[in-house]
Design a protein around this nucleic acid. Structure first.
Length: 820
DNA sequence: GACCTGCTGCGGCTTG
């Protein structure tokens, strides 16, 4: 190590004066950084991951300017810090500014994101701050400006913060592409290579995460791991009488009375729920049961007005709130020190997410993170036991990197075309050096260029798809109109059309989806942001409401994502059943569930880790087949479809299908042709692709995936900001393009991408193969219970829900449920 | 293409 003496001394003196000692991993990161290396830092939240790198940059600076590092000169951009959240950028900027001020280093820290004022942007353009915090989208907007290379001429370091969050998303691909350009610029201008660092929480594939970030394999690159034992304590909220706790359901309010004392005894509690409507319901219900909390309780989710959310976040900082009910909107980022308790309502679906949420409490070094698990139905308690075991074994999910996202590439090339234009060979070198596009062929590259210049085989007669001009190997967009439209569409997050909800007298409350409000008439009441509102009218694409004193109100629902149970959690879950039946378990969750397991074993069977249970039940409704792969709803659904198809090849028979994260149901009005001898072939991998093609409507799946792809690739103009465009217009233009490509341009890469995404994300094909293989090689146990079992019950209730009104449903459930 | 469970995230308005 050379030339590090003075910087080290300044920093260590500074830390010592504050009675602070750096963690070993921080020093390690600085050391590697000073050696000019790139890499990845992995540490739990709350341990100063930010400083592990930032102080390295500062030490380096002092070393390079041993005498005059205090002097005020314009140094240009040194450090680019990419964060996925605007709020995070603000937090980090504040922390960095403090450090710089204390060390008397006259650096500027700037933020570049969507809410950066125009005046600030202009000032930045003239004089870039030394440190710039930026979102992936804003980085691309920067690259979309004239003479953008000037911005980066002095850049030495890029940090990708919360890289685990972006890896595996198209926003991550944006970072890969942005980095490829910055690296290319450095090389072209003969500067020393950029130092690129990722900061990541623990995930299963840290090594791969680093490879994706760095693109080109770098044998010198290092992973710095904080060897810190973050203590996590998980405790379940148990029903007093398991016999009376529902076998099915998703709300969990039945156990609220047991959560309230926990809230009251804590300083501040975060209550995580899985869906937005659930936060609304929980908020109302908490206030009903505990009116004292009025004013000290808040709710937070993605469809609540930003101002209100910021207020809630501030109040969390200052510790003025007793509890906040939220969705994963509070998963990330901002550290709320007063939070000492976390309650997870329902299945967290994955180990990593659970750890992330647990980490929102005890957010300082050495502190224990305490999390309570509140099951929404009986069987979910097994997940708590499984989570404990997963945490003990440190089984954390991997994030699969996105591969060959042609839509993002098309958008990126357009971005380059609207700034200074690009030389194709130069950019191709850079692009195929990224992880995402390393398997792209030259033909495919030529296709993307041709698509942008001519519109491809299907669209060549429409001028609006001839976006850029080709001048030899140089590509540039000369149309100001196209350039402006493109700037409006940079980014890869495609949202559904939502309507703003606003009081008659002004004041925004949040967002509601079109279809939900469409069924309301004036005078109807609904709840949002914890308030009961009366619908008045829709004006200028805004829902106008007034306050209501009504006691009953409809809770809105949003069409959100449907995260399936993760493979890891599924696996540990299956293993946990072994322990459950052993009879000598020490886990309270499993002890409490003993009567339920006994009943399940009495009526049918409790499957062990190396078994698949199939229950064949005959009821008034018909002939049921229930199976429990515990592979998450997506895989369960495809498996059900596959089984239905393979069974129908034996005898003509039709089924209706239902599924949840644990298993699936096939229901028919005639006996299902299945015996212990011929059951295995149903799960065989032989002819899998052919059978899938015959049974699953992959074209329809691909069509749905195609909408986002077409928007990202810039084929669909979504309208000007603030101007509402109905989502069905979006849907229909995407559908139209899908048809046109299918018919006239079947080699279209975007079309291929749509099918790949359908197979990969919708059918989880890789996971399906693995689980079929597992089942084929395990023991399949078939039972013939006389009545519905605790295992099949939740699936049955879910499938009934689709057909009946809620009162009828309740009656039906009562009738279905056997006595203990 | 949507509802009785169904997440999160960002960005933009070229002009008299």
């Amino acid at each position: 190590m050379k030339n590090t003496a003075s910087g080290w001394k300044v920093i260590t003196d500074w830390l010592t004066a504050r009675d602070r000692q750096p963690f070993a991993f921080q020093e390690e990161a600085w050391t590697y950084y000073l050696q000019g290396k790139s890499g990845l830092v992995n540490a739990p939240t709350g341990y100063g991951k930010t400083f592990s790198l930032f102080l390295g940059v500062v030490i380096d600076w002092i070393n390079r300017h041993p005498k005059d590092y205090h002097s005020k000169t314009k140094n240009g951009l040194q450090l680019l810090w990419i964060t996925p959240l605007r709020a995070l950028a603000k937090d980090i900027a504040r922390a960095m500014e403090e450090v710089l001020q204390e060390l008397n280093i006259p650096w500027q820290v700037g933020i570049r994101s969507g809410d950066t004022p125009v005046s600030t942007r202009a000032a930045q353009k003239k004089n870039m701050p030394e440190v710039l915090l930026i979102t992936p989208e804003s980085l691309h907007l920067l690259i979309g400006q004239k003479e953008y290379p000037k911005v980066f001429t002095s850049l030495t370091t890029v940090v990708a913060d919360e890289w685990h969050e972006l890896l595996g998303t198209k926003r991550g691909v944006m970072i890969e592409l942005g980095l490829s350009r910055l690296k290319g610029l450095a090389k072209k201008e003969g500067r020393s290579p950029l130092r690129i660092w990722g900061i990541s929480a623990t995930i299963g594939n840290l090594g791969e995460a680093m490879d994706v970030l760095l693109g080109t394999p770098d044998p010198e690159a290092v992973i710095v791991r904080a060897k810190l034992d973050k203590k996590i304590e998980l405790q379940s909220i148990l029903p007093d009488e398991i016999e009376k706790y529902p076998w099915a359901g998703h709300l969990g309010t039945r156990l609220l009375y047991k959560a309230l004392p926990i809230v009251n005894e804590s300083k501040t509690t975060l209550i995580f729920t899985n869906v937005r409507s659930q936060t609304e319901i929980w908020y109302q219900e908490i206030l009903r049961q505990c009116p004292d909390l009025a004013g000290a309780l808040a709710l937070h989710h993605g469809s609540i007005d930003m101002e209100l959310r910021i207020w809630v976040e501030e109040a969390l900082h200052t510790g003025t709130l007793k509890a906040v009910v939220c969705t994963s909107s509070l998963d990330l980022g901002v550290d709320f020190r007063p939070v000492d308790t976390v309650i997870q309502v329902g299945s967290p679906k994955g180990v990593a997410r659970f750890l992330q949420r647990a980490g929102r409490s005890g957010h300082q070094p050495g502190a224990t993170s305490k999390i309570w698990f509140l099951p929404t139905h009986s069987l979910e308690l097994v997940e708590a036991a499984a989570l404990k075991s997963a945490i003990a074994q440190q089984i954390v999910e991997s994030r699969m990197p996105v591969i060959l996202a042609y839509d993002v590439l098309l958008q990126y090339l357009m971005t380059l075309a609207i700034s200074d234009g690009f030389h194709a060979p130069e950019i191709w070198e850079e692009v195929k050096d990224t992880f995402c596009f390393r398997d792209m062929t030259e033909d495919e590259w030529e296709w993307t260029l041709a698509f942008l210049t001519t519109g491809g085989d299907a669209l060549y007669s429409y001028d609006e798809f001839k976006k850029i001009d080709r001048e030899g190997n140089f590509f540039i967009c000369r149309s100001r109109m196209q350039a402006m439209r493109h700037r409006l569409h940079i980014g890869v997050i495609v949202s559904d059309a939502m309507l703003k909800v606003k009081f008659m007298g002004g004041g925004f409350i949040g967002m509601i989806e079109e279809w939900f409000i469409a069924r309301m008439t004036a005078g109807d009441t609904f709840s949002l942001g914890g308030r009961i509102l009366e619908f008045v009218m829709i004006k200028d694409m805004t829902v106008l409401v007034r306050k209501s004193n009504a006691k009953k109100a409809i809770v809105p629902s949003w069409m959100g994502g449907r995260l399936p149970l993760s493979p890891n959690l599924g696996k540990v879950l299956r293993e946990t059943f072994n322990e459950a039946l052993s009879g000598n378990t020490t886990e309270p969750e499993l002890q409490v569930l003993q009567p339920l397991f006994n009943l399940q074993e009495y009526l049918s069977h409790v499957p062990k880790a190396d078994e698949l249970l199939i229950e064949m039940i005959h009821t008034r409704d018909g002939y049921h087949l229930f199976a429990y792969p515990f592979e998450g709803r997506l895989v369960n659904e495809v498996m059900a479809t596959l089984l239905a198809y393979r069974l129908s090849k034996r005898t003509p028979i039709t089924f209706s299908i239902a599924m949840n994260d644990y298993g699936f149901e096939l229901l028919s009005d005639q006996p299902i042709p299945l015996t212990p001898d011929d059951v295995y072939e149903l799960f065989s991998l032989d002819h899998l692709s052919i059978d899938l093609q015959a049974s699953v409507n992959s074209t329809e799946m691909a069509r749905r995936k195609f909408r986002d792809i077409a928007v990202i690739a810039g084929l669909i103009f979504q309208g000007y900001p603030g101007k509402h465009k109905q989502s069905r217009h979006l849907q229909s233009s995407a559908s139209l393009l899908f048809n046109v490509f299918t018919e006239y341009d079947s080699q279209n890469l975007l079309l291929r991408q749509a099918f790949n995404e359908a197979f990969f994300y919708q059918m989880e094909e890789a996971r399906l193969r693995e689980s079929l293989d597992r089942i084929y090689n395990s023991k399949i146990v078939i039972t013939y219970p006389e009545e519905l079992t605790p295992f099949c019950f939740p699936i049955k209730v879910d499938s009934l829900r689709e057909q009946l009104t809620s009162e009828k449903l309740e009656d039906r459930i009562k009738k279905m449920r056997p006595e203990f």
